[in-house]
Write a protein that binds this DNA or RNA. Structure first.
Lengths: 262, 262
DNA sequence: AAAAAGTCTG
DNA sequence: CAGACTTTTT
C-alpha cells in the first residue's frame, strides 16, 4: 500500500513537465525514505534523477519498497487536470496494476480521481558516484535558461569555462559565434539572484545545447540552478525542490576536437 | 423595418463567438418580443437556442415579425470589427436582402457600418417543450469548462451523475479513467461562485465531450452555467445573458452500453 | 504544421 | 482596449 499526500501539488506537475519530454517511461521508486526516480533519456545520453523526500509530504505511507512503472506523458496529462493549488495524493495497492492520482481543491468542494495503468519497465539502476567537482556554479535558473536558449540560435554546442573571473558560455555556428560571461555576484537583493562560483581549478567542457535546453524545462521548480563541472565527468545540473529534494540532470561532455556525431 | 440598438455590443460579439463554430447558417427571428435564434448544429446532433429580449435593447423597433437568414461566420467576422465598448445597431428594411451592422464608438468619434447579404435558409422550427428536469446543477461556468476540457484529455464521453452528494463527471479512455465530483457549495463570497444542486431524483447520463466543449465557448457570456438533466431527455446547458435572455444548448444523451459510432 | 488561447505591452 | 506576440493545443 502506497499513499503519498502532497499539499503543494503544483510541485509534482512541474516535475513532470520538466522530465516528460526527456524520458517517456520510468520507474518511480518508493521507500520509507521518499519518492525517487532515475532514468536515462530516450536516446541514452542524459540521465535524470529525482528525489522527493518523505518528510516533504503531508502524509507518507509506503509499507514496503516498491517500484512503479509509469508512462510519463500519460502521467503528465493527468496531473495537468489538477489545479495548481490542489492537494495531490498518489495511491497504489501493493501488487495492483494501477495508480490513482487524487486531486482535492483547497476548499474540498471538488475532488477528482484519475486512475492510470502501470507498466513493467526494465531499468538499469545506475549508482551515481558522489564526485568531487572542480567547479560549482550557482546562478539564477532563468538566466541559465535564457543563455542556453540564446546560444542555441547560434550553435549546437556550448563550451562552459569556469575561471576565477567567472563562468563563460561560448558557442560557434555558421552565422557567427557568441560568448556570454557571468561574473560572480553576491551583492543582490535576493539570495536567489546571486551568481556564486566555487572553483578548485579551472575547467572547460563542451555540451550539446539540445540537452541543456531540455534540462531548463525544470526552471519553474527553483529560482536558482547549480551546475557542477569536472573534467571528464558528466555535468550535473541541479534544481533544488524546496524542503523536499532535487531534480538533477547529468550529461557527458563532448570530446573536444571531435565533430558532431548527430 | 428593423432597428435594434444594443448598448453593450460586446454581448453580441460573444454570442456569435459562442455559436459560429457549431452552426454555420441560421435564421434570426425578430418580433416585438425580441431577437432570437434556434438552429441545429451542422451535424444535426446539438441544438442552439438564443433569446435576446426586446427590453434589453436601448431601442427596439420591429414593425412586423421577420426571419433574417445569416451566415454566422460572416456575421461574426463583421462583429469582430466592432470594439468591445461600441454600441451596435442592427438594421434591415422589410423585404430587403441585406442587413446593416452599425458600430458607434462610446464618444461618437467613429461610426462604422457593415452591410451583409442575407440568405434564404430553410429551418424547421422545433418547438422545444418545457420539461421537468430530474436535476438542475448550477455551477461556475469556468469550472464546467475546465472539467469538460480536462476529461476530454482522457476520454471522448462523459457520464454526468447527480446524487444528493453532488454531481459526478466521469470518463474512461485508453490511458485510464477519471472522476470529478463537485459538491453543493453555497458558502462562497460571490453568488456566481456557488455550486447549487436541485435534485428531484438521481440521474445519470452520458454525453459526447466534443459537443460539451463546443458549448463552453459561451463561458465569457456568464459566470455561471445551468445544466438541466432528465433521463431520456436532451441535457440543457444554459448561459444566462444578463438582463436580456439566454443562450441554451441541447444535446441528446448517448444510449448506454453502445460503442462510439465515430 | 496550423490554429487557438493567453499574455504582454503600447 | 487592441494589437502583437508567445505559448499551447489539435
Amino acid at each position: 500500500m502506497l499513499e503519498l499526500r502532497l499539499v503543494q501539488g503544483s510541485l509534482l506537475k512541474k516535475v513532470l513537465d520538466a522530465i516528460k519530454d526527456l524520458v517517456t517511461d520510468a520507474n518511480f521508486d518508493c521507500s520509507s525514505t521518499g519518492f525517487s526516480l532515475q532514468a536515462m533519456d530516450s536516446s541514452h545520453v542524459a540521465l535524470v534523477a529525482l528525489l522527493l523526500r518523505s518528510d516533504g509530504f503531508e502524509h507518507f505511507r509506503c509499507d514496503r519498497s516498491v517500484s512503479v512503472g509509469m508512462n510519463l506523458n500519460n502521467m503528465a496529462k493527468m496531473l495537468k487536470c489538477a489545479s495548481n493549488d490542489d492537494i495531490i495524493t498518489i495511491k497504489s495497492d501493493d501488487g495492483g496494476d494501477a495508480v490513482t492520482f487524487m486531486f482535492e481543491s483547497p476548499n474540498q468542494d471538488k475532488i477528482s480521481d484519475f486512475e492510470m495503468k502501470l507498466m513493467d519497465i526494465d531499468s538499469e539502476h545506475l549508482g551515481i558516484p558522489e564526485a568531487e567537482y572542480h567547479a560549482i556554479v550557482k546562478m539564477p535558473s532563468s538566466e541559465f535558461a535564457t543563455i542556453c536558449k540564446d546560444l542555441s540560435t547560434i550553435g549546437d554546442t556550448v563550451m562552459i569555462s569556469v575561471t576565477k573571473e567567472g563562468v563563460r558560455f561560448s558557442t560557434k555556428g555558421d552565422i557567427g559565434s557568441a560568448n556570454i560571461v557571468c561574473r560572480q555576484n553576491t551583492s543582490v537583493d535576493k539570495p536567489e539572484e546571486a551568481t556564486i562560483i566555487e572553483m578548485q581549478e579551472p575547467v572547460s567542457l563542451t555540451f550539446a545545447l539540445r540537452y541543456l535546453n531540455s534540462f531548463t524545462k525544470a526552471t519553474p521548480l527553483s529560482s536558482s540552478v547549480t551546475i557542477s563541472l569536472s573534467s571528464e565527468l558528466p555535468v550535473v545540473v541541479e534544481y533544488k525542490i524546496a524542503d523536499m529534494g532535487y531534480l538533477r540532470f547529468y550529461l557527458a561532455p563532448k570530446i573536444e576536437d571531435e565533430g558532431d556525431e548527430s
